[in-house]
C-alpha cells in the first residue's frame, strides 16, 4: 500500500461516454496534480462506453506511476458487467473496488 493520505474523490455523472471524455480528461489531469490517492465514485454512473472505461484505466495507470492508490467505489452492477465484458475487471475491480467502502 502506498501513502495513506485521504483520497481525492471524483464523482462521475449518470453518463460517462465519448462525448464527455475530453472534459473528464481535463478534470482527471487536475486531480493528478494533487498528488493524493484517487477514488472514483461510480454510484451515479448508469451508462458507460469503452472510451469512458479506457480513460479510467489511464487514470489508474497515472496513479500507479506516482505510487498512489486508485480505486473505483460503488460500481453499479450494469457498469460492473461492462467492465468485465471488456476484460478490464482484473484491472479495475480488484481488491475491494466493488460496492463496499
Amino acid at each position: 500500500m502506498a501513502r495513506r493520505t485521504k483520497p481525492v474523490v471524483v464523482n462521475l455523472d449518470d453518463e460517462f461516454q465519448i462525448h464527455m471524455v475530453n472534459d473528464r480528461f481535463q478534470e482527471f489531469l487536475h486531480v493528478m496534480e494533487e498528488e493524493r490517492p484517487v477514488e472514483v465514485d461510480m454510484s451515479r454512473v448508469n451508462s458507460v462506453d469503452f472510451a469512458g472505461l479506457q480513460l479510467l484505466y489511464s487514470l489508474k495507470r497515472s496513479c500507479e506511476e506516482k505510487d498512489l492508490d486508485f480505486r473505483l467505489s460503488h460500481v453499479t452492477p450494469p457498469v460492473e458487467q461492462k467492465i468485465a465484458l471488456c476484460g478490464l475487471d482484473r484491472e479495475l475491480l480488484k481488491d475491494g473496488a466493488d460496492g463496499s467502502v
Partner: peptide, 14 residues
C-alpha cells in the same frame, strides 16, 4: 493504454 500525460481521450489503445 498510456497514462494521462500521453493520453488522447478520443483514441482507442486497446
Amino acid at each position: 493504454i498510456p497514462s494521462l500525460a500521453e493520453y488522447n481521450p478520443e483514441m482507442s489503445y486497446i
